[in-house]
Amino acid sequence: EQIEAIAKFDYMGRSPRELSFKKGASLLLYHRASEDWWEGRHNGVDGLIPHQYIVVQD
């Protein structure tokens, strides 16, 4: 089940696996990879999304 999230802040990925996005961006989350990271998608690209930078939608 995919979960929708909105970016709270701009984020610049620090490795090829991390996604970069702007504040207000819509993100799709697949699952929680760790306490700090989600596996997800932004603009058709899959990668890691930092939990602290997003708001998960109910």
Rank of each mutant, 00 (worst) to 15 (best):
Y30K: 14
V55M: 04
Y11E: 00
E39V: 07
R41Q: 09
K8Y: 15
F9I: 14
V45W: 07
M12S: 09
S20K: 04
A7E: 00
G13V: 02
F9C: 03
L28Y: 12
L48Y: 07
A25I: 04
P16I: 06
L29S: 01
G44K: 06
K8T: 07
N43D: 15
W37A: 04
R14T: 06
K23V: 06
I54V: 12
D36Y: 10
G47V: 02
S20C: 07
R32M: 11
R41M: 09
S15N: 13
D46E: 05
A7H: 00
R17Y: 12
S34N: 15
R14F: 10
R41C: 14
V55K: 07
H42R: 05
P16H: 10
E4H: 15
H42W: 07
R17M: 11
Q2E: 14
P16F: 07
R32Q: 10
L19R: 02
Y53K: 14
P50E: 02
L29A: 01
K23H: 05
A33S: 13
L48K: 14
V56S: 13
P16V: 07
A7P: 00
S15L: 13
H42M: 12
S26C: 13
Q57T: 09
R17A: 12
V56L: 09
E35N: 04
D36K: 06
A25M: 13
E35F: 14
E18D: 11
G13E: 08
Y30V: 11
A25H: 12
N43W: 05
P50W: 03
L27H: 00
R41W: 10
Q2F: 15
E1C: 06
A33T: 10
R32K: 15
E18I: 04
G44H: 04
V45S: 15
H51W: 05
R14K: 03
G40S: 01
H51R: 10
L28D: 11
Y11V: 05
W38V: 01
G47D: 00
Q2L: 13
A25S: 12
Q52A: 13
I3P: 04
L27Y: 00
K22D: 14
I54H: 02
R17E: 06
A25R: 05
K8G: 08
R32T: 04
G47R: 02
Y53D: 09
H51A: 13
K22V: 14
E35R: 05
R17L: 11
L48A: 10
A5L: 02
K8W: 03
E4Q: 08
S34P: 02
A33R: 14
P16D: 07
S15E: 14
E35G: 12
K23S: 13
H51C: 13
W38Q: 01
Q2N: 10
E39F: 06
R17V: 07
N43F: 15
L19F: 02
K8A: 12
A25T: 11
S20G: 06
V55H: 15
L27T: 02
A7L: 00
V45R: 11
E35Q: 09
Q52M: 10
S34K: 10
R14N: 13
E18N: 03
R17N: 15
S20Q: 05
G13Q: 12
G47I: 00
G47W: 00
P16G: 12
Y11W: 08
V56F: 12
A5T: 12
I54T: 06
S15F: 10
H51V: 12
I6C: 04
A33D: 05
H51D: 10
K8S: 10
P50M: 08
L48W: 06
I49T: 02
H51F: 07
L28I: 08
K23T: 13
L48M: 12
L29H: 02
E18R: 04
K8M: 05
A7W: 00
Q57G: 11
I49V: 10
A33H: 08
E35D: 11
G40L: 00
R17F: 15
F9V: 14
E39C: 06
E35Y: 10
V55L: 14
Q57D: 08
D10S: 10
H42L: 08
Q52L: 08
F9N: 15
W38M: 00
R32D: 01
H31G: 11
R14V: 15
F9W: 05
W38L: 01
K22I: 14
P50K: 14
E18A: 05
S34F: 05
F9K: 12
I54K: 01
E39K: 14
I49L: 07
S15C: 14
S34R: 10
G47Y: 01
R41N: 09
W38N: 00
L29C: 04
W37E: 03
S20E: 05
L29W: 01
R14E: 15
W37G: 02
H42F: 08
P16N: 05
K23P: 02
P16Y: 10
H31S: 10
E18T: 05
A33Q: 15
V56C: 14
A7G: 11
E35I: 09
V55W: 12
D10R: 05
E1S: 08
D46R: 15
G13H: 05
K8N: 15
M12N: 14
I3K: 15
G24S: 08
V56G: 09
S20H: 05
S34E: 11
Y30T: 07
Y11N: 05
P50Q: 07
Y30D: 05
I54P: 01
S20V: 05
L48S: 12
Q2Y: 15
K23G: 09
A5H: 02
G40R: 00
F21L: 03
R41G: 11
W37F: 03
V55F: 13
A5P: 01
L28R: 10
H42Y: 11
L28N: 04
G24N: 10
Y53H: 14
G40W: 00
S20T: 08
S20R: 05
I6R: 08
D58C: 07
D46S: 04
G13S: 09
W37I: 05
M12P: 04
K22T: 10
L19I: 07
V55D: 06
R17P: 14
L19A: 04
D36F: 15
E18K: 03
E1T: 07
S20F: 03
W37V: 07
E4F: 14
A33G: 10
G47C: 02
G24E: 08
Q57A: 10
E39R: 10
I6W: 04
S20N: 10
F9Q: 13
G44C: 09
E39G: 04
Q52E: 13
I6H: 03
I6N: 06
K8R: 08
R41Y: 13
Y30F: 14
E35H: 03
Q57H: 15
R41E: 09
V56Q: 11
V45Y: 02
S34C: 10
W37K: 05
L19G: 01
L48Q: 13
S15I: 03
V56P: 13
D46K: 15
H42K: 05
D36H: 04
A7K: 00
L28P: 03
R41V: 12
W37S: 06
K22Y: 14
Q57S: 11
G40M: 00
D10L: 02
K23D: 03
M12D: 13
W37H: 09
A33C: 10
E1Y: 12
L19P: 02
R32Y: 03
P16K: 06
K22Q: 15
D58F: 15
D46Y: 05
E35K: 07
M12H: 10
Q57V: 12
L29E: 00
L28M: 13
G47S: 00
L48D: 03
A5D: 01
A33E: 07
E4A: 08
Y11L: 02
R17K: 14
R32F: 00
D46V: 03
L28F: 08
L27M: 14
A5G: 12
D10F: 03
L28C: 07
L19T: 02
V56H: 04
L29Y: 01
L27S: 00
G13C: 11
D10G: 07
H31V: 11
Y53F: 15
E4I: 12
Q57W: 08
V56D: 15
A5V: 13
